[in-house]
């Protein structure tokens, strides 16, 4: 099993990257790789509760995000300074089984991987 980390850094609706990152993570889980997902920078907006993307004719990725554990993606991380700088509290996240990481913990996570999938 290969250790892989997907880093998702872009907003949920501005372009396709958020969805493409998520699809990649699900594919890695289907291939039984040791895949982890880290949200940072504008990627943390993906986790905000109450998104109604149908207003802009987009699918809701929140449902897929909440299905991650079902597909065997147990390790979902959020870069806490990215939340703080955007004024997002933990309570306003749509996922509760996420681990918040400091800069140092994020560095350690990155350093322990074999492959990074950058989105």
């Amino acid at each position: 099993m290969t250790s892989m980390l997907c880093i998702s850094r872009h907003t949920p609706s501005g372009n396709a990257l958020a969805r493409e990152a998520l699809d990649t993570v699900l594919a890695a889980a289907a291939y039984e790789q040791d895949i982890k997902l880290l949200f940072m920078d504008d990627g943390v907006w993906q986790l905000l509760k109450g998104q109604q993307p149908s207003h802009i004719n987009q699918k809701d990725i929140t449902k897929n995000l909440s299905a991650l554990p079902i597909f065997g993606v147990e390790e979902v991380y959020v870069h806490e300074p990215s939340l703080q700088s955007r004024g997002i509290s933990r309570d306003s996240l749509s996922l509760n089984n996420v681990q918040l990481l400091t800069n140092e913990q994020t560095q350690a996570l990155i350093a322990s991987q074999q492959h990074i999938l950058s989105f």
Partner: peptide, 8 residues
């Protein structure tokens, strides 16, 4: 380097 992280 073991990993490559692309910031874009």
């Amino acid at each position: 380097h073991q990993c490559i992280q692309s910031w874009y």
